[in-house]
Every structure is written in C-alpha cells, then in structure tokens.
Design a binder for these strands. Structure first.
Lengths: 117, 117
DNA sequence: ACAATAGTTAAGCGAGTGCTTAACCAAAGT
DNA sequence: ACTTTGGTTAAGCACTCGCTTAACTATTGT
C-alpha cells in the first residue's frame, strides 16, 4: 500500500493492540509515568516504550520529560477523530437503511434468498 | 500477547487499513458484490478477498453467495462496538478533566514546566 | 564519589500482514 | 458443448510487528 501513513491508519493501528488500549484506559483516568504505565503489564520496559511510541506517533498520547521521569497524558482530539470516522459511516448506513425501509414499505414482495458461505 | 483474539483487536485491526476502510465506506452506502467492491481498488481480486475476510472475521461485514455472485453488506452493530469503546474512554477523560478544572479553579498557582522529548 | 532509579537505544528473532501469480471451480450466456 | 464471468484456493515473498536481551545515559538519593 506504499505506506501513505494517513492519520486514521495510525489511529486505528494504535488502538488495535490490547496492551495499547490498556495504556489508553489507564491514561484516560489521568497522567502517568512510563513505569506506572508499565507496572500492570507483563512485559519488559523497552516493549512498553515501543507501545508508547506507537501511541505518540498516532497522536493519541503526548508525553514530556521532567527530570528523569516522563509523564504521559492522553490527547483527546485524536480519540475524537477516530470516533468521528465511525459515526460518519454509521450515519451513512442509517440513511441507507431508512431508504430501504421506505422501499420495503412500498413493495411488500420479498424474493430474497441465499446461502451463507 | 498470546493472541487472545478479543473482538476489539479484530475490529480496530480491520479498520486500520485504508483499503478496508474504503470497502466499509462503499458498503455503508449499500450492499455490493465482490467485484463491485474491487473495481475502484488497484489490486488483484484475491487481495480484495483477503481484505473481505478480515472484515468478516472482525464482524464488520457479512456476505452471502447467491448463484455465482457474493453480496456483501455492513454489520452496523460491530461499528457500534468500536465507537462505544472510544466514547467510554472519552467520558472517563472528560470527567477527569472536569476534576482538574475544579482543582485549578481552587489553586490558582501553576508551577508546571517540562521539555517535549 | 557511588549507587540506585527511570528511561533509552540497538540488534535480533519469530510470527503476522499485504500483496502477488498460477491454477482452479462453478454459475450464466451463446 | 463451450466460453465467459465471478469468485476461490494455494503458495510464496518482502516487509512490519511485538517482543526479547544487553548495554548505555542521565537524574536523584546517600
């Protein structure tokens, strides 16, 4: 796909991993340091760092270093972007469904059949 | 992570690919056959089939074969599941933000500083 | 000065992803 | 009957992902 790196790719990719979702859940309850983030996770620190980096390049999380501790916080606008895409699709689909409803209301014959693969 | 195959993994993974999102967009405007789905995509039919399979195992799309044509349609409940997870996180975060607002309103001193990494 | 704490970098490895081509099957059209 | 159309399966390949260990840096506590 030639890696066009669109924002939504990064966003959904970031959310696709359970560890990363856990990190987001933790951060949605307030900021945390890297080791606080790592504490409930059964993996090495570098692994956590890598997940954090994915979250940062997706825009879901921002972090800043003060002294020797890096504090991470959620970036709610990114979450909003993903939510928006989904709800737009839902809106499209619901409009389409309404039209189908209208159609079926006016054509009460239904010759539909098929085998699930 | 030992592949626990949680529904949200499959869902977000499925949405993380631009081709698959295009297919979902197409299907959110109404059902389509496999080749209709493939027509605007610059890739082979088997590749499209593979994307379709990812969408199906994620629960986002359902399809049925009638004669020799397979008709695909969106499964809106799955889309809803993903949206819900996000909006729950947002709700958490917003509550937390409100508490921070209260705190800042009562403590008008702000000794915050840090270097972006 | 020295040690402990908090994080970071680099290299490597096995499994998974996104494509391809080639070969194939089955319903529909002529 | 035979060809076209619509889809499917299998194998293979380059690349990415999620993790590891080992080594290293920088701040903080004693």
């Amino acid at each position: 796909m030639l890696n066009q790196s669109a924002p939504l790719d990064l966003l959904f990719q970031a959310l696709a991993d359970p560890t990363r979702r856990l990190m987001v859940e933790r951060l949605s309850r307030g900021p945390a340091s890297v080791s606080e983030l790592a504490q409930p996770l059964a993996m090495s620190l570098p692994a956590v760092l890598q997940h954090l980096q994915v979250l940062e390049t997706s825009g879901l999380v921002r972090s800043q270093k003060t002294g020797r501790v890096r504090t991470c916080r959620i970036e709610p606008t990114a979450l909003r972007t993903a939510e928006q895409w989904i709800s737009e699709r839902r809106a499209h689909w619901e409009r389409c469904f309404d039209r189908l409803g209208d159609y079926l209301a006016e054509h009460p014959d239904d010759p539909q059949k098929g085998n699930e693969s």
